[in-house]
Write a protein that binds this DNA or RNA. Structure first.
Lengths: 257, 257
DNA sequence: AAGTGGTCTAGACCACTTT
DNA sequence: AAGTGGTCTAGACCACTTC
């Protein structure tokens, strides 16, 4: 009640009205506001964000509260902190940490001479299964991509992607081929859709005719099958990817922690 | 220099002597001290730890500094915080989150009626490959375990384990069978070795005769092969596990975040 | 009522980067 | 020198659990 004896309590009480049910910490609310600004593109991937003091002033809270909000955003890889420089919006473009979404590693060393060959890009209608996983209606427009990734000249990954047609209107084979760097970099810079997290389901399958042809292995060869659903802000599914990995000289690397 | 104008600077300066090179935050040092106490067994898995105020007193730092140290330990799953109750040493025993190390999930629903059948337990000498991954000398004593895990009566996982002989002296088939709950619970309560994190390498392989027999699949069937190295405190490798998973009705679940 | 972790603030100083 | 994030402290109050 008394600003002098409890300046902290004021802000907290004002925002939360001290209601026990539906209580939400101030820093969570600030975090949500910052996330909205990220989503709306007020600060674009790779750009410098306002400083902590600046944000504290804007939201009328202490720097410590802003700090805790940004701490969580950094832990979720939505922003990157650099001491002395500032806080930056995370980006898939320059980010060396695209290892976050590329888990297939050579048995020794690091990926060498990666090369992408686009086999097909077309606009079509979502099959039932795809629609279900992307939370679309069956028959909605989707972009379909099929490509092969090679390392050291060895074809290693055959993958198919489905993207919501509405979000990726101008996506053509040309732009896909032109673009240098990870595909998620293209998605975020050209189509304003940033992949935040993904879930994968991994199985062992036998090589079918297509896999045999593109990965240069005998039909029936055991291969890894990774089915990925990627999400953007607000846990909205925006990519379905089905990858077939040859694990003769590579493995799927995972950390349990 | 002046305690009145900078009470905070005092503790920090005293500990770090304001040396820029080799600078290490106070809370990191506190974290290391607490980790030592965890490792030494001063507080055992499942037990209640001293409160933050108590620890702050012991280490002669502010509660906020202890708090930041414990925050990181909680993020690494070494301890668990419970509001109103206190901070507890994490345990594999009651921990429902043994999903952290069991990534194979049924295609629908959650694991049902799990059942473990121990096929073999023996003490032997480490093969070169095993010794290398466990950071032992080739020929050192190891415990070898082979078992099959079933879900809903369906044999699904065939796995082999190698453990350093020195750490698991009294480990027999009987104790393994008697023990109810996850194996890591047995390891931590009976042998004082707690698994902290692990790395896995996943491949697709063809079922050999053994896999075919124990998992009831035809020879040549594609199966997942997960090679895991687990680490305890101080990043010391203490388990090598090679699992063969049938992915007919299950998949390896992974979160990319 | 007492104790615990959780939130919030204000202020000082440190480490790092740029001007 | 100035600005940024990073550390540390002290103190108040809140939410939750237990007595």
């Amino acid at each position: 009640m008394n600003p002098l004896s409890n300046p902290a309590g004021d802000a907290a009480s004002a925002a939360n009205a001290s209601q026990s049910p539906s209580f939400r910490p101030l820093y969570q609310q600030i975090k949500a506001l910052i996330t909205q600004s990220l989503q709306s593109g007020e600060w674009k991937p790779g750009e410098l964000m306002p400083s902590e003091v600046e944000l504290a002033g804007r939201f009328k809270v202490s720097q410590g509260t802003v700090r805790k909000a940004i701490d969580e955003l950094a832990a979720e890889h939505l922003v990157v902190r650099r001491q002395g420089k500032g806080t930056f919006v995370a980006t898939h473009a320059e980010e060396r940490a695209h290892f976050r979404f590329l888990r297939l590693m050579p048995d020794e060393g690091v990926p060498h001479h990666p090369d992408n060959r686009v086999l097909e890009v077309k606009r079509t209608r979502a099959p039932a299964e795809v629609a279900r996983l992307l939370e679309l209606k069956s028959g909605d427009a989707v972009v379909y991509i099929k490509r092969v990734q090679s390392f050291d000249g060895q074809p290693t990954i055959l993958e198919e992607l489905w993207l919501p047609g509405q979000l990726f209107k101008g996506l053509t084979a040309e732009r896909l081929v032109e673009y240098k760097g990870p595909m998620y970099g293209l998605f975020e810079s050209e189509f304003g859709t940033r992949m935040i997290r993904a879930t994968e389901r991994i199985r062992a399958v036998a090589a079918d005719a297509a896999a045999s042809e593109h990965l240069h292995v005998a039909e029936g060869t055991p291969l890894l099958c990774a089915e990925r659903v990627s999400f953007t802000y607000g846990d909205k599914a925006v990519e379905l990817r089905k990858g077939i990995y040859s694990t003769a000289h590579h493995h799927y690397q995972n950390e349990l922690s």
